[in-house]
Write a protein that binds this DNA or RNA. Structure first.
Length: 471
DNA sequence: CCGAGCGGCGCC
DNA sequence: AAAGGGCGCCGCTCGG
C-alpha cells in the first residue's frame, strides 16, 4: 500500500464531513439578483446583435442555407455549414485531444473552431469569431438567468453537494471530491476572458457580512510531493513548493535552458532569475513558464508527448510536433526524475493489484480495465491511477479542514459560516467584525487548512471582500 | 412527449 | 480505432 497509515484517521472524519456538507448546504449563499438581471439584459442585447451579425455573414457566403432557420447551437448544422458547404478541412484537434478523423469524427468546439479559423480565409475567420463570441454570451446568460431562480424563501441559494455512493442520489465523485448541483456552483466562470459579465460578482456577502475565500496553493502538486517523499524519499518537488520557490520557473529553466539550450533575449533561458518568468518585461519567458505549467498539469492527468505535440503551440501558433514534445517531456523527467519513477511505480502497482489506493486509503478498482488485456484499456487504467492518489488526497485534505473549521469553537463564536467548497477552496461569510477579529478568523482558517499530516508543506492564500469576485 | 446519448463548456 | 483525470448542465438529435 502506498499510504494506508492515514486511512483510519480519515475514516473517522468522513462521517463528520457529511455533517459539514449538510451544514454548508443549510447555510447557503446570498445572490445579488439585481446584478444578475442587469447583466442578463446586457448579455441578451449582445446576443441579439451577434446573431444579427452572424446572419449577415451567412447571407454573404452564398451557400444557399436558410439563415432565418439556422440554429447556431446545433452541432449537426454547424458541421453541414463548415464542412459540407464551405469545404473547410476538419480540425485534427479539440479541447481535450486529437480528433479521430479517419473514423469520420468532426469537432467544432472552441479549440477546433480556432483551428478552422487559422486555416481558412479571413471571411470564414470572421464567422468563426462571431460564433465563439455567441457561445460565450450564451454561456453567461445561462447562469445569469437561472441563478435567481434558486433563491429560496430565506433569501439564500442552497445548492446540493455530496460524496459519491451507489445509493446516495446526491452529487459526488469516485475520488471523494464533492460535486454540486442545483445550481452547479463549482463551475461558475472565473476566467475574465470567458466571462465578460463577471458572474462571480453576483455572489455577495449578505448585509452585515463579509466574504472570505481560502484556497490551498497547488494542492495536488503538494500531495504529489508528499507521495514522492513517502515512496522514494525524494524531496526535490517538496523543496520547490515552499515560499520563495517557483516550481514552474524552475522547470522552465531546466527544461528549456539546461536541457534544450534554448535562448531568449540573447541569453540562455536558464541564465534568467526565477522572477523574470513572471515579469511583464519578458513576455517570451512568461510564455515558456505557461507552457511548462501546461505540461505539468497535463502530465498529472496522464497526458503524453502525443497529446502535447498538438496542444502546445510555438510562437507562430503552429503545433510543436511530436519530436519537440518528446524532448520537452523527457527534459522534464530529467529535471524531476521522481516523475517517471512514480509513473513506473503506479503502472506496476496497477498491473499487480488491479487498482490504486488514494492518499486517504480509498480504493479505486481498475480490474475491469486491467484484466481485458487490451493495451488501450490498460493505458486508461494507468492514467486514472496516476491521478487518483492526488485527487482523492485533495478531497480528504479539504474535507478534514472543513471538519476542523466547523468544529472550532472560536470560529463558531465569531459566526463564521461555510458557503462553498470548490475542491481546494473554502468560501465563508463572516459577520462584519472588528479588524482584529477578522484576522484571528483568517489565521484559524489557515491553520486548519494546513494541518493535514503531510511531509510536504501545505500553503493557503486567503482573501476577503464584498463579492466572490473580490475575494 | 420523453429519455438517452452526445457535443460543447464551465470549474478544479 | 483508441494517446487528458474528475464532475454537472444546456441544447440538439433521434428513437420509442
Amino acid at each position: 500500500m502506498i499510504l494506508s497509515s492515514k486511512a483510519l484517521w480519515d475514516a473517522a472524519r468522513m462521517n463528520e464531513v457529511e455533517y459539514g456538507i449538510i451544514e454548508m448546504e443549510r447555510n447557503g449563499f446570498a445572490l445579488d439578483v439585481g446584478y444578475c438581471n442587469n447583466k442578463a439584459e446586457e448579455a441578451q442585447i449582445n446576443e441579439q446583435a451577434t446573431l444579427n451579425d452572424l446572419c449577415t455573414w451567412g447571407e454573404g457566403l452564398g451557400v444557399g442555407l436558410n439563415w432565418a432557420e439556422f440554429n447556431w447551437a446545433s452541432p449537426k448544422q454547424l458541421v453541414e455549414l463548415f464542412h459540407d458547404k464551405l469545404y473547410c478541412d476538419p480540425s485534427p484537434v479539440w479541447k481535450k485531444g486529437r480528433v479521430n478523423l479517419r473514423a469520420g469524427d468532426r469537432k467544432l468546439d472552441e479549440t477546433a473552431l480556432e483551428w478552422v479559423r487559422d486555416h481558412n480565409s479571413p471571411e470564414i475567420a470572421r464567422g468563426v469569431d462571431l460564433l465563439i463570441c455567441l457561445r460565450r454570451i450564451r454561456g453567461a446568460i445561462k447562469y445569469l438567468t437561472k441563478l435567481p431562480n434558486y433563491v429560496a424563501p430565506d433569501g439564500f441559494v442552497h445548492a446540493v453537494s455530496g460524496p459519491a455512493s451507489d445509493v446516495d442520489p446526491r452529487a459526488g465523485t469516485i475520488t471523494w471530491r464533492l460535486a454540486s448541483k442545483n445550481p452547479e456552483i463549482l463551475q461558475i466562470p472565473t476566467d475574465k476572458k470567458k466571462d465578460p459579465y463577471r458572474i462571480r460578482r453576483a455572489f455577495v456577502a449578505p448585509p452585515g457580512f463579509k466574504l472570505i475565500a481560502a484556497d490551498e496553493t497547488a494542492l495536488e502538486a503538494v500531495i504529489f510531493a508528499h507521495v514522492l517523499i513517502e515512496l522514494f524519499d525524494d524531496h526535490l518537488l517538496a523543496d520547490l513548493l515552499v515560499p520563495g520557490a517557483d516550481l514552474h520557473a524552475y522547470n522552465a529553466k531546466r527544461v528549456y535552458g539546461t536541457y534544450l539550450k534554448w535562448e531568449r533575449y540573447g541569453h540562455r533561458v536558464d541564465d534568467f532569475p526565477d522572477a523574470a518568468f513572471k515579469s511583464d518585461d519578458y513576455p517570451e519567458l512568461q510564455a515558456l513558464r505557461q507552457d511548462i505549467k501546461a505540461v505539468w498539469y497535463g502530465l498529472m492527468y496522464g497526458k503524453s508527448a502525443y497529446g502535447f505535440a498538438t496542444s502546445l503551440r510555438d510562437a507562430s501558433g503552429a503545433p510543436i510536433g511530436q519530436e519537440v514534445a518528446e524532448k520537452i517531456v523527457n527534459a522534464l523527467y530529467e529535471a524531476l526524475p521522481a516523475i517517471p519513477r512514480y509513473q513506473e511505480f503506479i503502472s506496476d502497482y496497477v498491473q499487480t493489484h488491479f487498482g490504486i489506493p488514494g492518499l486517504g486509503g480509498a480504493w479505486c478498482d481498475l480490474s475491469e480495465l486491467v484484466k481485458t488485456g487490451n493495451k488501450w484499456d490498460l493505458a486508461r487504467a494507468n492514467r486514472i491511477a496516476q491521478n487518483y492518489p492526488m485527487q482523492e488526497g485533495g478531497a480528504r485534505i479539504i474535507g478534514a479542514a472543513m471538519v476542523d473549521i466547523l468544529n472550532d469553537p472560536r470560529l463558531r463564536a465569531v459566526g463564521l459560516k461555510l458557503e462553498r467548497q470548490v475542491h481546494d477552496e473554502l468560501d465563508f461569510r463572516i459577520p462584519d467584525l472588528r479588524l482584529e477579529d477578522e484576522k484571528v478568523a483568517k489565521d484559524l482558517i489557515k491553520h486548519h487548512m494546513t494541518s493535514y499530516p503531510l511531509k510536504s508543506l501545505l500553503q493557503v492564500s486567503i482573501g476577503s471582500g464584498a463579492t466572490w469576485d473580490d475575494c
